[in-house]
């Protein structure tokens, strides 16, 4: 084993035996990392549960202030981007360079659309005095300010993850355009995909929990 008989793939790092081991390590690594992400968002969801239990009425009222159409639009956008991301990974596995680049760019475009929509939502909140702090509308019910604190923390951290995701994708798409990824070496694309899907899943939970409470009876 000390003298490798087969030639090593140029992308195989020194401390791995073979490409399979390297790929398995990176995939498992991403999954373990996503567990920490789940726990990270988990703290926020914990706060959500406690305060929703304390202030059920204020929660519905506050949710009513959110624009569920925009939230729904963003949900669609993210789901489509997850699809294109999955297709990009598949293109990488099939060594299809053009498709890879196309799907990755589409995913990034959709991610950007999400952030733009988010920006306009935030802007509206500032205009309606719904941002916690000294300018928060004092006429609102006890508990609503906590809802908006959580809303900004949750969606803000989610958006930060999107921005990081776009950064990762930029790196991936540049390398994809150079033809780095193919059936033998597609780990980075897959790992980036896992991260992107996870960010999508967080939104899948945030959407009904934040936007849709106020829909009925209001």
């Amino acid at each position: 084993m000390s003298t490798p008989t087969t030639t090593r793939h140029p992308k195989l790092q020194e401390h791995f035996y073979n490409m399979d081991q390297q790929l398995e390590a990176s995939t498992l690594g991403m999954w373990v990392f996503l567990v920490t992400e789940v726990m990270f968002f988990g703290g926020l969801f914990m706060a959500y549960i406690v305060y929703r239990h304390m202030y059920p009425h204020a929660w519905v009222e506050a949710s009513h202030e959110l624009n569920w159409q925009l939230g729904g639009l963003n949900t669609m956008v993210l789901i489509v981007s997850s699809l294109t991301m999955a297709l990009a990974v598949r293109a990488a596995m099939l060594s299809e360079k053009k498709q890879q680049v196309f799907y990755l760019l589409t995913t990034m475009a959709l991610g950007t659309v999400f952030l733009v929509v988010k920006f306009f939502e935030y802007k509206a909140k500032f205009e309606h005095h719904l941002v916690p702090g000294p300018h928060f509308n004092p006429a609102l019910e006890q508990g609503m300010q906590i809802f908006f604190s959580l809303y900004f923390m949750m969606t803000g951290i989610h958006a930060a993850h999107m921005v990081i995701g776009l950064g990762i994708m930029t790196y991936i798409v540049i390398n994809a355009a150079k033809g780095t990824y193919n059936a033998e070496y597609y780990g980075p694309v897959e790992v980036a995909g896992l991260y992107w899907h996870f960010v999508d899943i967080v939104w899948i939970f945030l959407f009904p929990l934040l936007y849709l409470l106020g829909r009925h009876g209001a």
């Binding site: 914990m46 916690p132 702090g133 006890q142 906590i146 923390m153």
Partner: peptide
């Protein structure tokens, strides 16, 4: 940022922080 999650003034629960 003046977000209030544990702030008792706006109805938050400091014990949640301890949990």
């Amino acid at each position: 940022l003046h977000l209030g999650i544990f702030d008792p003034k706006i109805g938050g629960d400091p014990v949640l922080f301890q949990h």
